[in-house]
Computed example of a mutant assay.
Amino acid sequence: MTSSPELPSHVLPDGVPVGIIADTHGLLREEALTCLGGCGLILHLGDVGQKAEDEEMLSHLAAIAPLYTVRGNIDTAPWAEELPMTQTLTVNGWRLHLVHRLEDFDAATPCDVILHGHSHKPRNEWQGERLLFNPGAAGKRRFKLPITVGKLWLGDAGIRRAILHLPI
């Protein structure tokens, strides 16, 4: 756990989670908003939506907590061109790297947690010294995959994490 001064940095009080959402595809469910309430930060891992009005969902998320977003492969509307392909920030000293597609992650990137979306499959596993975390998809159901969001609690003692199935 190391901090880098050039990265955006946040300190959250003990017990305050980081909310993680991905693959909304133009649908921001009330259940997702409820699950993300009380978060100190929200991270959207791409595939926000393709329509002009889909940008509004980022405003709804930013009204809950400070928001960081990366661009997904379907984020092709003019407003989405300003979204970065990747972002790295620190939270309570932990380096988080956001990317939509895991295959676009550069293994040389110094980070403790790789946050990714795209597959719609929740993932919560350590690979060596890095946590790979995919909150799954919170928008339109694909295949028979669950509708989910994620939360991370980042502290001195380590990282606690959860995948939350939305009650829909």
Rank of each mutant, 00 (worst) to 15 (best):
T86N: 05
M85P: 03
V113M: 07
A138L: 08
L41E: 02
A22S: 15
R141F: 00
H165C: 05
I114Q: 04
T34W: 11
G26R: 03
I64Y: 01
G38N: 10
L132S: 01
H44N: 07
P110D: 14
A138T: 05
D75G: 00
R71E: 04
W79S: 00
H25A: 10
R141W: 00
L152V: 10
I163V: 14
L45N: 04
G155D: 08
G19K: 02
P167A: 15
T109E: 13
M85Y: 07
L164P: 01
I64W: 05
T109W: 01
A138Y: 05
K151Q: 12
H116I: 06
T88D: 06
I64N: 04
L102F: 13
N92P: 09
G38L: 12
A162P: 02
R142L: 14
A32F: 10
M85I: 11
A80Q: 03
S3T: 14
L164V: 15
L7R: 10
L27H: 12
L61P: 05
T76W: 01
R161H: 13
E56C: 03
H120S: 03
H120R: 04
S119Y: 00
M1I: 10
G150D: 03
H165I: 09
E30I: 00
A162N: 08
G155Q: 09
S3M: 13
I168G: 14
L164E: 14
E31P: 11
T69S: 14
P167F: 01
E81G: 03
D112K: 07
L152M: 09
D23F: 04
K151L: 11
R95K: 15
F105Q: 05
V70W: 00
D106R: 10
K144P: 00
I64K: 06
L164D: 05
L36A: 09
D23I: 06
E53L: 13
K151F: 04
R142H: 14
L28V: 04
L33Q: 13
A162E: 15
G93M: 10
R123D: 14
G37R: 15
D106C: 12
G15S: 08
I114C: 03
N124H: 14
G46I: 09
K140A: 12
I159H: 08
H97M: 06
L27C: 11
V99L: 07
S9A: 15
N73V: 10
E82T: 14
R101Y: 06
D14G: 06
A108H: 12
V16S: 02
H10D: 04
G19P: 03
Q50R: 14
